[in-house]
């Protein structure tokens, strides 16, 4: 196996990601090494609306796509001949946003006669970690972002089994809503994390454990509890410290995420635990997971901040695995906003 790998030609994958509010392109070597990684963020534009507006996101994507592709290719120092294939996020995400990446990828693949590989966005988030360290199986991945809260079991490369997911709001969504209640600017996640570090866990917010054996999540009850607490305090004329609200809210989210991830890692005999998605940047969550997994002696992989949020290197990395397994997409590839992870 080792000798076979050594003799194999390097694979250079061009990745494209436009599922939400980042227009991104990247070149990745062998699924493990970033050659170039360009992200044009739209956060500044969406800030004034307090969240991502799909139509505005699509408009930015079409304006940025060739600019970002050009920069990614130039920075990689690759010629088209060096690129082996094109990987693109086909879903899930905002349909109008996904369409820009998908159609750009198809045009590239056609113009240059390159194979095309459609990639699941969450598979991308998981594989962001492989750009830092090689995977060891079986592994458990916790994906937490504005759109997702999922526990995924992987027994080998490219095979995903979703063992738990949110039944209502994603963790990142709850963060954004609570941030809005506290009148914090968008995006709210990092703001709450910052406040929480200064506050005390003085309010006992609920933890949604659901059924004993369930790995599913639920954050809408917690969100309502926070809203009610703020509301009641205001009616009684009591001033609650935003730092304490943030700390108490974050403690609830982090405890549930940590406990379920630890239980899954034990049950599935994980040799590695991976954290991915925008909320992986949360310092409270990082600390809690690091503490628990240090005790269990299970290696914990959390990508650096720049790879936690949406980027195309992660799509190229996940796409490389699919490509090696022989997956190919046709010229009829479509954006699939509700794509399942399998």
């Amino acid at each position: 196996m080792g000798a076979f790998k050594m003799s194999k030609k390097d694979i250079y994958m061009l990745g494209i990601e436009t599922s939400c509010d980042e227009t991104a392109a990247a070149v990745v070597k062998n699924g493990t090494e970033i050659v170039s990684n360009v992200v044009a963020s739209q956060i500044e534009s969406h800030k004034r609306f307090g969240g991502v507006v799909p139509e505005i996101a699509s408009r930015h994507h079409v304006e940025q796509i060739t600019v970002v592709l050009e920069e990614a290719l130039e920075k990689s120092n690759c010629a088209w001949d060096d690129i082996d294939a094109i990987a693109v996020t086909e879903g899930p995400g905002l349909v109008g946003a996904l369409l820009i990446g998908v159609n750009a990828a198809k045009a590239l693949a056609f113009a240059k006669g390159k194979p095309l590989v459609g990639v699941h966005h969450i598979a991308g988030h998981i594989y962001a970690n492989r750009l830092e360290r090689e995977f060891e199986f079986p592994l458990i991945a916790l994906i937490v972002s504005g759109g997702h809260t999922e526990l995924v079991y992987m027994k080998e490369h490219g095979i995903y089994e979703v063992i738990g997911q949110t039944r209502d709001d994603a963790a990142g969504e709850a963060y954004d809503k609570v941030a809005r209640m506290l009148k914090l600017p968008y995006p709210g996640g990092p703001q709450i994390d910052r406040l929480a570090a200064k506050g005390q866990e003085s309010i006992d917010f609920p933890r949604a454990w659901l059924e004993d054996d369930s790995y599913d999540f639920s954050f809408s009850g917690l969100k309502s509890a926070v809203i009610n607490t703020i509301h009641n305090a205001k009616q009684r004329g009591v001033e609650l410290s935003p730092e304490d609200i943030a700390a108490s809210f974050q403690a609830s989210v982090v405890e549930v995420l940590t406990t379920k991830t630890v239980r899954a890692a034990k049950e599935y005999g994980a040799k590695q635990v991976i954290v991915a998605g925008g909320v992986a940047a949360n310092s409270g969550l990082r600390q809690s997971l690091e503490r628990e997994f240090a005790q269990l002696d299970v290696p914990l992989l959390i990508p650096p901040l720049s790879l936690c949020t949406d980027n195309a290197a992660m799509i190229a990395a996940a796409g490389t695995i699919s490509f090696e397994k022989g997956k190919r997409s046709g010229m009829d590839l479509n954006a699939n906003p509700g794509l399942e992870l399998i």
């Binding site: 079409v62 369409l99 159609n103």
Partner: peptide, 10 residues
């Protein structure tokens, strides 16, 4: 946008 993205990329 579908037409423009395809045309621009080509």
């Amino acid at each position: 946008r579908i037409g423009l993205t395809t045309a621009k990329t080509l």
